[in-house]
Nucleic acid binder design. Structure first.
Lengths: 131, 131
DNA sequence: ACACATTTATGACAGTTGTAGTACTACAAC
DNA sequence: GTTGTAGTACTACAACTGTCATAAATGTGT
């Protein structure tokens, strides 16, 4: 497959939250990211700037210069990062059993009816593909 | 619900692997844990001992003394830790959509037919419960 | 008693993460 | 041109993680 799991081997919470912002828009300046995060948690501007620079060094984001400011974009996809976390959860915690993992998700998350319908459809499709 | 997410806020890889061992048996001495891990990765005995002691300080494991050696057991359940990882994955990466998260799991994991059947059953049960 | 093995306790160190203060740079307005 | 202002770069630091080496304690065998 790829070495995605090695690149974002261990992502901290703030880094994940920053990525989350960057996944929701095509690009964002430091001020933009800071503003978005600020709404949930007070953070110094420089904290965000520092994290973004460190994350760029690790290849998680990239920037272009617009005037005197940097405009960042994510260079990893949510699905890649999700794969890491999902793999970790399924393999390490649930001994490789996807069923157990999903079962747990269902039990601990209070899912709405439409979600269940969507999931059912999803699985039927997967079955069709596997047949 | 509870504050489980605060206790094992950020678990490192080795800690997770140690817990995995401790989840697979009722209890295990340091040597046992070390032996199990040794098979996949060369590790100094003291590394494991140190980690276990640190983990006990954080309430992740506990020990009793048997003669001169410590016998550890996990004090958190796999499902608790799975909840953290699952929550993190679903909320932060997949914007709260369990469907997207599971969909991703299905696509990236090459699931066997029986797993799909089990999942389908799981969802039907969840539906019945919600009705 | 003495050497050897087993096991826990401490101390150390490098790398990462969150956090932010300080410093430097460049433009904007007067 | 001096003064804000906004932005990046650098430095620092505490907490945590993985990693051990070394020390200290407590057996075991002969």
């Amino acid at each position: 497959m790829n070495d995605s799991s090695s690149t974002h081997h261990r992502l901290g919470d703030l880094q994940l939250r920053i990525l989350k912002v960057l996944w929701s828009v095509p690009e964002a300046s430091v001020a933009d990211v800071h503003g978005r995060l600020q709404s949930t948690q007070p953070l110094a501007y420089t904290t965000v700037a520092t994290l973004l620079r460190r994350m760029e060094a690790r290849g998680l984001v990239a920037h272009r210069e617009q005037g005197r400011s940097f405009v960042y974009r994510a260079t990893v996809e949510a699905s890649e990062v999700g794969a890491s976390l999902g793999h970790r959860m399924v393999e390490q915690v649930f001994e490789g059993s996807l069923t157990d993992a999903v079962s747990h998700l269902l039990r601990t998350r209070d899912v709405r009816r439409e979600e269940l319908d969507a999931l059912e459809k999803l699985i039927r499709e997967a079955k069709r593909r596997t047949r």
